[in-house]
Design a protein around this nucleic acid. Structure first.
Length: 318
DNA sequence: AAGTGTAACAACCGCCGTAAT
DNA sequence: TATTACGGCGGTTGTTACACT
């Protein structure tokens, strides 16, 4: 991008790039007020600005348009909507942004990208030693439980904008009660990992999982089934997996977690939410029980995937 | 206080669809 | 019908501010 002062490429009829200044903004706003948000290329042809029409349009749409929520962080409700809509539409940022007043496609895209990077980093962070400057991964279980960060959901990373793929007929091995984890870029699309705070708000669960992970006698990562927030958690979900667990590893190379992994279902110690009675979970969370979802993963040793057993490839699931 | 890592943001690039010629 | 220009969109990159050690 430009130099430190944003003054670049302004030579004769050259196209100017880089950060916009107040004068340029003023010219652009005046043009739009006069002619409407169109004829972007005419701005340059008229000699008003040395910006491309594309650049002008982008500036207007992302920064100068009225009623934008510039500088405002995404609210919990907006966050929830983004996650939900991304699951519904994929990476159709303009479509998603159209459902969020004051937000642009760029806003949504950046927001999603940040979350994706964060989740990816969490999944890749080595357990020892932990990054000395990590802000989100230096917590212990107690810290996590005491956190009041209003993060309510963990969404899955996505790789591409291809249409949502059909779920495999079953991701569950009924015999072993395993959730099959199979990295498949083509189908890393659909749902979200929705970790309701009440699900996370189980200190016993958290500690038990952590213990399980480091206990060589329990070589497999014990992970609970997570209820779907949109379903209001009918008790019958106690033994089902209404979310797409695959997406947790959506953008993690298969080589990093092994080609395939298995996750046993959650044992009963996980508490009433995971035991099936989650009717009160979902929206309207108890602030006192808030858990920073990132911390949940942070407390897992990074080598938890080292012990996962291979399961058949998708072509063998039938 | 300095160094480092991360999140958030701004802007550009390339691709694609569409309308005009 | 083919070509071209334009606008829209998604992906990507660079910069800055901030938090943490």
């Amino acid at each position: 991008m430009g130099n430190n002062h944003g003054e670049i490429l302004e030579i004769g009829d050259e196209i100017k790039k880089g950060p916009w200044n107040a004068e340029e903004d003023e010219v652009l706003v005046r043009h739009v007020n006069k002619y409407g948000p169109r004829d972007w290329s005419s701005i340059r042809s008229k000699g008003l600005l040395q910006r491309t029409g594309k650049s002008c349009r982008l500036r207007w749409v992302n920064k100068l348009r009225p009623n934008l929520k510039n500088g405002m962080k995404f609210s919990a409700e907006e966050e929830r909507m983004v996650i939900e809509l991304q699951g519904q539409f994929g990476n159709k940022w303009a479509r998603i942004a159209s459902c969020l007043p004051g937000r642009t496609d760029n806003d949504v895209k950046n927001f999603w990208s940040s979350r994706q990077k964060r989740l990816t980093r969490i999944l890749r962070t080595p357990s020892t030693p932990r990054s000395s400057s990590s802000k989100s991964c230096n917590t212990n279980a107690v810290d996590v439980l005491q956190s009041n960060v209003p993060t309510t959901l963990i969404e899955a990373p996505k790789l591409s904008s291809s249409p949502v793929a059909e779920e495999p007929s079953s991701l569950i091995d009924n015999d072993s009660q395993m959730i099959k984890i199979v990295p498949q870029p083509d189908r890393i699309k659909s749902d979200l990992i929705r970790c309701d705070q009440q699900f996370l708000d189980q200190s016993d669960f958290h500690l038990a999982v952590a213990k399980n992970l480091v206990d060589d006698s329990h070589p497999q990562f014990t992970f609970p089934s997570i209820p779907d927030l949109q379903q209001d958690f009918p008790p019958a979900f106690a033994n089902e997996v209404p979310f797409n667990f695959l997406d947790v590893f959506g953008n993690v190379d298969a080589s990093e977690i092994g080609n395939i992994a298995q996750f046993p279902f959650a044992p009963s110690y996980l508490g009433p939410c995971l035991g099936g009675n989650c009717a009160s979970a979902g929206r309207g969370r108890n602030a006192n029980s808030a858990i920073f979802a990132d911390g949940f993963f942070c407390d897992f040793p990074a080598d938890i995937f080292d012990h996962m057993e291979p399961i058949p490839s998708p072509s063998e699931w039938g």
